[in-house]
Design a protein around this nucleic acid. Structure first.
Lengths: 189, 189
DNA sequence: ACCTTAAAGCAAATTTCTAGCTTCTAGGGA
DNA sequence: TCCCTAGAAGCTAGAAATTTGCTTTAAGGT
């Protein structure tokens, strides 16, 4: 996480934690649009210039916080088979990401991310989850597609619609993507 | 185009044009990061408050300009067959969108877009282009997938990688996506 | 214990943003 | 054609934000 690893223990770490906490608290209290750097600084008991110097601006700070919140907190559930594992995961992914909150985090993560490292992190989270599912399936002796294939055929279409076409996204579509992937070319690559 | 249609002829239109032009000129001269509302206002010979009132903030103004620049200026080339038409289009799409400039426009378009209408417009541009290709192929009697299928299998994966995984994107990948789509399930839907 | 130095604090200067009020002008009606 | 009206644009002062130079603090190494 780019801007995170700064003098791991000690004052810097405390400031970072205080600022992140302040962002989350204020976001809950005032909503995404009520946030300002001076406000956050005050809540975190830090001077605004500290935030400007460490994060550059509000967008980059929010991007860092958003990535944290997009990190999956649990491993994908095991339903005993590749198809059901992937389907369940895709449905849950869609659920979390397509919610107003999820979309806000995705946008924030992309937004204040000059070098693309935060976006890359988000993508890595999804790829890791998928990898867990595929590895598990392979362990069972199932024929599995590659992670890249799943990302292209399931994750990407979902994310594209979330970002570019707010309407008409439901669990059925997610299921359809997984089904299309598995029947079409499960062994590819 | 959301904020564009304001008193089509007359002063408003002139102001809008002046502001958009100013954005493009200044972006060329100073780069994306040198832009500020007061600067743009000065170049456009307009008061800053006019920009704030009409667009809200810099992000929304840039979003409008970005969408304009993402509008395709020509119909997809006709290579005589669905496979080659789609392949060529995908390669060109990737080329334009994955360039630093293209990525900046996509980001800007998504960024200052509270209601998602600009993002929807971008998506519609791509869907329209694809539709032209598919309709043309159908006219030749070819078996074609639906627009949605092409969007899910080609456009979405490309866009996802452009946004989330800056590295490792090339024309070969675009070709592979099209090939996978056409051999796997050309008649689906 | 003592340096070194990255990072935080402070405060002044600058810039950007907001808001209230005035002026202009395109478009419509008499 | 000549008003009238309403939606924008202009102007300005005040509030809020961002930037910047300098000082102080405290981790981490010697």
């Amino acid at each position: 996480m780019s801007r995170q690893m700064v003098r791991p223990g000690g004052r810097s770490a405390r400031v970072q934690a205080a600022v992140h906490t302040a962002v989350r608290e204020l976001e809950a209290e005032l909503g995404r649009d009520g946030l300002t750097v001076p406000l956050i600084a005050q809540r975190a008991e830090v001077t605004p210039s500290t935030i400007y110097r460490r994060w550059g601006d509000l967008a980059q700070l929010l991007s860092d916080v958003a990535v944290e919140r997009l990190r999956p907190d649990t491993a994908p559930q095991d339903h005993g088979g590749l198809a059901s594992d992937l389907t369940a995961w895709a449905e849950q992914f869609l659920d979390e990401m397509a919610s107003p909150a999820g979309r806000a985090y995705i946008r924030d993560a992309l937004l204040g991310d000059p070098d693309g490292s935060n976006a890359g992190q988000c993508s890595a989270y999804a790829a890791d989850q998928v990898d867990v599912i595929l590895t598990r399936a392979a362990g069972r002796g199932e024929d599995t597609p590659g992670v890249e294939t799943v990302v292209d055929h399931v994750v990407a279409p979902l994310m594209y619609r979330i970002l570019f076409r707010p309407a008409g996204l439901d669990a059925a579509h997610a299921r359809g993507l997984v089904a299309g992937l598995l029947e079409g070319d499960a062994a590819e690559k």
